[in-house]
Design a protein around this nucleic acid. Sequence first.
DNA 1: TTGCGGTTTCAAAAAAATTTGAAATGGTGT
DNA 2: ACACCATTTCAAATTTTTTTGAAACCGCAA
Lengths: 114, 114
Amino acid sequence: MPEIPDPIKEQCEKKGGLKGIEKALPSKKNIKSNSQIFKALAEPMRLKILLAVIEQPLCACLIREMLGISDSKLSYHLTVLKDADLIEGSKQASWIIYGPTKLGTKMADIIDKF
Amino acid sequence: MPEIPDPIKEQCEKKGGLKGIEKALPSKKNIKSNSQIFKALAEPMRLKILLAVIEQPLCACLIREMLGISDSKLSYHLTVLKDADLIEGSKQASWIIYGPTKLGTKMADIIDKF
DNA sequence: TTGCGGTTTCAAAAAAATTTGAAATGGTGT
DNA sequence: ACACCATTTCAAATTTTTTTGAAACCGCAA
C-alpha cells in the first residue's frame, strides 16, 4: 500500500481499512437495482415522459404526439421506464394508457426537491 | 388527432391539451441538469465510488485499490461524478482526496430511502 | 536537474445504448 | 374475412459511452 496522507490513512484504518469501507456499502443487488432506476431517468426524454404521465395518464399516441418522435423510438423508451418500474401501462380498447408507479411518483418528488 | 378514450381525452383537455401538459413540466434546462445527475449514478461502479467517499474521503489510489480497476478507468468515472457535481477533489501533496458534495450526499440519502 | 509517485489526458478500440424502418401483433368495426 | 388503428418487436445501422494502454502533467524529494 502506498504511503497515504496520515489523517486519511488513520481514518481509513479506523473504519477497518478498505475492506471495512466496502462492507459498509449497500449490497451489490441494491446498488444494481438503484443504478437501473437512475439509468432509466438519465435520458431527458424519459424524464419528460415520466413527468408528463404523472401530470396526466396518457396513451402512447399522445405521448408520441407531444414529443414528436417515431412509434418505435417511443416504444423503446417506454420499455426502459417500464423495466425500471417507474411507469405502468393499462389496456383500454385499442389504447395503452401509461401512468406512474409509486416509485415513479416518488422519484418525481425527488426531482422537485432539487 | 386520433379518437382517444373519452375519460383520457377529457382530462387531457381539462389540462389544456398536450400543450398544457408540456407547459406544466419543468424547464428543459432543469430536466437536462437532473438527467446528468441520474446518468452519473446510472453505473453501479460510480454509485459505489460516491457511497465509499461519503463513508470516508479517499484518494484516487485507494479507490482504485478498493475497486480493482485501472488508473485511467477510474479517472474517467471520477470525472463523470465531478462533472455532475456529486463529488469534489482536494489536493493534498501528491494526492487528490475525493469527498462528496452536498448534492452527492443528498443523492445518497435518497438511495438509503429505497 | 533528475527520478519517482499520483493522477489525468489522449486517441483508438471495444462495448453499450439508441435509432430506424419494416414487419408483426392485437383489438375493433364493417 | 378484410381493413384499419394502436403498439410492440425485430435486426441492422448509428450514435454514445466506456475501456484501454501509452503519454503527459504535476508536485515532492534528493
